[in-house]
Amino acid sequence: MEPKPVRLSQTTITELMIPSYANFGGKIHGGILLSLMDKVAYATSSKHAGTYCVTVSVDKVEFLQPVEVGELVSLHASVNYVGRSSLVVGIRVEAQNVKTGIIKHTNSSYFTMVAKGDDDKPTMVPPLLLEHNEDVKRFIEAMRMKEIKRKVREEMDDANSAIDIARAPQLLKDERCVLKISLT
């Protein structure tokens, strides 16, 4: 399987933010932005894999600035990392005020996608050809994130198995909750 360069699957989707996308505060719903990010992650990963891809996880969704009705939102995506059947797609979301021309960075996120074959099972993806320093940097960052996620999962599994519910009153005494159950 021949490696494919990052540039071949880079994708940008731009969409006008309309009033029906707004929440009660007049800002664009985070769910609308997540849906658009999922769309661009699918397009980017499928272009690289050459097959259907599904979303497995979404990491680091931080809404840095609100998006307003009337702005043009552009989602810039590229494959940052590939494993055997998985791909990490980095997405940068920008909103442009068409009256002023000002562009603001509103979100960044990382979607882990898995390529599926005709049998609906994970299928191998082409290696990623790293042609620029930025490609190498993003690949290594994704490797590190993958390792950090694995360690967190392991620690959470250990912590969950070690929770002593009888110690809840002591552990929760300074938290903003009220226990309304008898602990046994």
Rank of each mutant, 00 (worst) to 15 (best):
K99R: 14
K104I: 05
V82Q: 10
M37Y: 03
D59G: 09
F63K: 12
D120V: 12
E94R: 02
I103V: 15
S108P: 00
H76C: 03
K116V: 09
V82G: 04
I32N: 08
A95F: 06
T44K: 07
K121A: 11
R84F: 10
V61F: 11
V54M: 09
V40K: 01
A49Y: 06
V82A: 03
Q65F: 03
N80W: 05
I103P: 01
V88Q: 15
S109G: 15
K104A: 05
R92T: 11
V114C: 07
Y81A: 01
G25T: 10
L34I: 11
D120C: 09
R92Q: 14
Y110E: 12
H29P: 00
K116N: 07
G101V: 04
D119L: 08
I103L: 08
I103F: 00
D118R: 12
S45T: 02
V61P: 06
M37C: 14
N97C: 04
A41C: 11
Q96W: 00
G30V: 13
H105T: 03
F63Y: 11
E94A: 02
V61R: 03
K47S: 13
G31L: 11
K104P: 06
T106C: 13
V73P: 05
L72C: 02
K104N: 08
K121W: 02
T44G: 07
T51H: 10
S109Y: 05
S85K: 07
G101W: 04
L64A: 14
M113R: 10
V88E: 15
S46P: 10
A95C: 07
T112F: 05
K116L: 15
S86E: 00
T100A: 06
G50C: 04
K121Q: 14
P66S: 12
G70P: 03
E71D: 04
D59S: 12
N107G: 05
V79T: 14
V40G: 00
V82Y: 08
Y81W: 15
M37V: 10
I32Q: 13
R92Y: 10
Q65D: 08
T44R: 08
S35F: 01
T100K: 08
K99I: 10
M113H: 11
R92N: 11
I103S: 00
Y52R: 15
V73G: 05
D120W: 12
T51I: 06
G83L: 07
I32V: 15
S108C: 10
D119K: 07
